[in-house]
């Protein structure tokens, strides 16, 4: 039956779907939910050197990298420190979904990069739905934040031991 109606299905989204499956935030989400994200979220292409957001901006969106790479840079005094270089399947700006505090660092496209942008009000609507998907998303975010806390705690202990 599915073979008969193959012409009706959109095969172009399959590549993007496989990238979305690798994203930590989307862990455990069903194919239909991932398709929902692909349909609903806004896609934007950035050129090399484009500033995606700057340190100190009020964060309002999360970004998922579909292709290309992004550099996360933090200003320390007069110096700029590269915290991470992210590639396809990574995401950044997740803290903006929890509270609208100023961005901790800046994000810049290192090459031609395509991002999927999840705005805070969309995320809030997903959470308000109060179903299995919203619980899974929240759980994924809690896991990420827990990982940050563990990492920082370990770094703090190493500094103290030295």
């Amino acid at each position: 039956m599915k073979k008969l109606f193959r012409w009706a299905f959109d095969r172009n989204k399959d590549d993007r779907l496989s990238i979305l499956r690798q994203v930590g935030l989307c862990k455990g989400l069903s194919r239909n939910v991932l398709m929902k994200l692909l349909v609903d979220l806004v896609e934007k292409e950035y050129q090399q050197g484009d500033l995606i957001f700057a340190e100190g901006d009020t964060g309002k969106a999360l970004y998922i990298i579909l292709n290309g790479s992004v550099s996360i840079v933090k200003r320390c005094g007069n110096e700029d420190k590269v915290l991470a270089t992210l590639s396809a399947g990574s995401f950044f700006g997740e803290l903006a979904l929890i509270d609208q505090v100023p961005r901790f660092a800046s994000a810049t496209a290192m090459e031609k990069t395509t991002l999927l942008i999840m705005y805070k009000s969309y995320f809030d609507d997903l959470i308000k739905a109060n179903n299995a998907m919203s619980s899974r998303l929240l759980l994924n975010i809690v896991e990420l934040l827990t990982a940050y806390v563990r990492k920082n705690h370990a770094a703090y202990r190493c500094d103290r031991d030295e």
């Binding site: 050197g49 100190g56 700029d80 810049t108």
Partner: peptide, 22 residues
């Protein structure tokens, strides 16, 4: 209005980031 406020704080940061890329 929010955007206008944000753009004021952003200009300074953008100049520094461009230096790294170049």
């Amino acid at each position: 209005l929010d955007h206008r406020q944000r753009m004021r704080t952003r200009t300074a940061a953008a100049t520094h980031i461009q230096k790294i890329i170049v």
